[in-house]
Nucleic acid binder design. Structure first.
Lengths: 189, 189
DNA sequence: GATTCGTTGCACACTGGTGTGCAAAAATGA
DNA sequence: TCATTTTTGCACACCAGTGTGCAACGAATC
């Protein structure tokens, strides 16, 4: 049954989200299954993490390309992107922690496309003078993105309050003036 | 000899900075000493990390209180703080990674005073309307601080370029207008 | 020269996690 | 009911890291 496999994946995301160092045993029991069964679906821990990451990349690039196609200004695009990405980012926040450590390289490789799309968006904003240029696009996008995840990890991660805070904060650090940032965050429900 | 002990501490900071999961053995060999010797000075890994953290807290609070006493506006204080803290923060950046995981609680406890001082400074800035208020001071300070460390972890961590980028970015996300942020970052060498 | 102190080099026990093999049991469904 | 697939429950080997015990060693000190 793929049902079991899917449940393991869902639960793993949850368990690892709370403790990135959780073992296969922890994930198994949380999924109401025996450790051996998990190994039946995922030959190694890395396989599990990789599958999770691939899922995340799929969902994120979908949102990102869709939003990118709207043709709006870069800052508006970013605001919409964060608002729509928020639930996804929050769900997959564990990947940020997992990027350091054992599987860092594998995850980093898979997340590459997302990083590129983000950097492109920031570059576009810089070229049209709506984003600050004190940092290269590649790094600025990562730092802004990191801040979003950091907020997702904090206490306000529940509800839309966190999404709003993340949108405003990331827009600010991208160099968008406060009034504009608040306006952009405001028209997202 | 305290000489050995000090060298172990220095090297440990370095080794752990590159890989937070490095073991006592790695630290020992990097210090040109045998694993058993490290245990002679630090009964457990936690003791080592704790000592490192205490060092960091001492250095950071020194800078923070000194800068705080200048009586300048909150944004100027923050700028000076980041500029002066930069080498220290970069050196102790491993503590950010170590906060999640095994020793998280211990480190968090020791770092408490620093967090408080930071939150107070941000609160002061919010009360005098130079910092944005879209997030509570406690969280805003952590996110801004986290961004500083994230930049310290990135490629530009060398030289004063990173310090400048960190100052500007953190000021931006605190709600300081871009022109003001650049001006504040500019008069720090 | 004897003593002291830090260091070394083992050996050891322990822990906690990973991944495998295999037979029995349970669910699925034809 | 029979056959297939999945799950289970052990047992096992393995690894990497932690922390300890102890005797031997070397250099400085008295």
């Amino acid at each position: 049954m793929n049902e079991t496999r899917d449940r393991i994946l869902d639960v793993a995301l949850d368990v690892l989200g709370q403790n990135p160092d959780a073992g296969m045993g922890d994930i198994a029991s949380a999924a109401g299954v025996v450790r051996r069964t998990v190994y039946g679906h995922f030959p190694s821990r890395l396989d599990l993490v990789r599958t999770l990451t691939e899922r995340a990349v799929t969902e994120m690039t979908a949102v990102l390309t869709e939003v990118n196609a709207s043709g709006a200004e870069a800052d508006a695009t970013w605001a919409e992107f964060i608002a729509r990405l928020w639930p996804v980012a929050h769900r997959y926040r564990v990947l940020l922690a997992l990027r350091r450590g054992e599987y860092g390289e594998a995850i980093h490789g898979l997340l590459g496309p997302v990083d590129e799309l983000l950097a492109d968006l920031v570059k576009r904003g810089q070229d049209s003078d709506v984003f600050a240029q004190h940092l290269p696009a590649g790094i600025l996008s990562q730092v802004a993105y990191g801040a979003v995840f950091a907020i997702a990890d904090s206490d306000l991660s529940n509800g839309t309050l966190g999404a709003r805070a993340a949108t405003i904060t990331s827009l600010l650090m991208l160099g968008v003036p406060e009034t504009r940032a608040i306006a952009l965050a405001g028209d997202q429900p």
